[in-house]
């Protein structure tokens, strides 16, 4: 009596149930593997391939001066804001102006994954802060975007689900935007987090133009009476 016999005892049962199928499988695997292993193939060697640079498609913003031709001041103001709206209603901006407690992401503006909430200060719940994942800068190895003030806009400043006209009137209402017109201009022209939208990193599509151009549009819009689209 040896251990092997005992350990693999009950021959008939094992033969019936498992052994033959197992052996069959091993034979198949063996034959397949052998054929595959011995199949002759040659491997390519490294060679020089030219870098094909996809010309990056830069979306331009019309400049404030382009609107000077519009004689009617009110009409010009609306046109200026509509041009600025190409930035405002861009997913890069809208994603952090959600109408719920949860940001959205990507150009498709899908709900943020993982599930996160704005918390008391827009910087995330006290137990899962934005800063758990988002650093001071974009981080290329992980693809996670970042900024020193990474946070959500207050819920009163929600843009998603609103028309450009609604957004416009909301911006001008200090009870909702918490900003005077001077502060509004500074937010749009100088705010670093707003500026992120022009340098979003990874394969994210930046907003059109440049922040200075956008700021000039806002400035011109304010100077022309800050008229809103309907």
């Amino acid at each position: 009596m040896s251990w092997r016999a005992s350990a693999f005892g009950n021959w008939r049962r094992r033969l019936k149930v498992g052994v033959l199928s197992v052996l069959g499988l091993i034979v198949v695997v063996g034959a397949g593997g052998l054929a595959y292993a011995l199949y002759p193939r040659t491997m390519p060697q490294t060679q020089s391939i030219e870098i094909k640079l996809q010309p990056a498609e830069v979306e331009r913003l019309r400049l404030a001066s382009d609107f000077a031709a519009i004689a009617d001041l009110n009409e010009r103001s609306v046109a200026l804001f509509e041009e600025a709206g190409r930035v405002i209603q861009h997913p890069r901006c809208m994603n952090c102006h959600p109408q719920t407690d949860r940001p959205t992401q990507t150009d498709a503006m899908r709900a943020h994954v993982p599930w996160v909430t704005r918390g008391l200060d827009g910087g995330g719940a006290s137990t899962l802060r934005c800063s758990t994942c988002h650093g001071d800068t974009n981080f290329e190895p992980s693809g996670v975007p970042g900024n020193p003030t990474w946070m959500l806009a207050p819920i009163e400043m929600a843009w998603q689900g609103k028309t450009l006209g609604d957004i416009c009137r909301q911006l001008l209402d200090p009870t909702r935007s918490h900003m005077t017109r001077e502060e509004l201009l500074r937010h749009m022209t100088e705010d670093e987090l707003v500026g992120w939208a022009w340098h979003p990193g990874a394969n994210r599509r930046p907003v059109p133009g440049a922040q200075a151009e956008f700021g000039a549009l806002i400035k011109a819009w304010l100077e022309t009476g800050a008229a809103c689209p309907p």
């Binding site: 993982p114 802060r129 800063s131 758990t132 994942c133 190895p141 992980s142 693809g143 996670v144």
Partner: peptide, 24 residues
């Protein structure tokens, strides 16, 4: 995941939980 999606790499940074895959 390497993309701050799964939390398996969580460490404490100055006592705060952070994902080490997205921290340089």
């Amino acid at each position: 995941c390497g993309a701050a999606q799964c939390g398996a790499c969580t460490v404490h940074v100055d006592g705060k939980p952070m994902r080490s895959c997205t921290l340089s």
